[in-house]
Amino acid sequence: MLAKSLRDNRRALAWWTIGISAFMAVYLSVFATVRQEPETYGTMAMNKFPGPLRDLMGGLTDFVSGAGYLQSVVYQLFVPMLFIVCATLLANRAIAQPEESGTLELVVTLPVDRRRLVLERFAALALALLAVAVVTLAVAWTISVAVDMGVPFDRILAAHTGVYLLGLLFGTVALTVGAATGRKMVASAVVGVWVVAGYVVVTIGRSVDAIAWLKWVSPFHYYADGRPLYEGLPVGDYLVLLGATAVLALTAVLAFDRRDVGV
């Protein structure tokens, strides 16, 4: 069951891995130029993005150091988002999509416990995403060495782990909503709203007192607040992400177990 899910997704996985790697390769290789003219690029970056937009990009205060550039360009917004989209699409293929297309009907009549079915599909999601994460980590590290960024491996590892956990968490949100409703549009919408709101809250929203407290329910808070690229693995924060993922996965199992399939 698990192996089959992975096999069914291998094409999508390959494309996502290539896509994210290519994205990082393009942006990171530019760093050589940025570093040669820190003044120009630093101010250019500041000017290009007016106030709130700059907040949205994570401040851009430090664009020209290795870690700063890596954070702003890769780990702040783009790569986490790519991971989240990839995770959501993969998660939709676990339950909601096959349910909508009708292929799940035969699968639930197989002699496999429904709870086990969901768990195996969750495991397949976690493993598939891990594969993308490992390969893209290798690419990130290789390029950062090539362009001499000067960021130690353990920091990149810490940030990349965060990206993985963030992607897995949102993927699991999609899986859970899909398992509970059988609708991939609903699942994608829930993820979309939570991602956008969660991201805004920890960037622009942090200076707005009225909504600042919302950061506690934003997964981005647990991903970025510990500044893994600068300070290393924020163990506590990441455990929160993992814990939330586990709770969601369990919810998915229970929700799917008590539901009519395909109605």
């Binding site: 009907e105 639930v108 009549t109 009519d260 399939v261 395909g262 109605v263």
Partner: peptide, 9 residues
């Protein structure tokens, strides 16, 4: 038939 196979409850 779906009831007999626990596809629906």
């Amino acid at each position: 038939l779906r009831l007999l196979l626990d596809v629906i409850r």
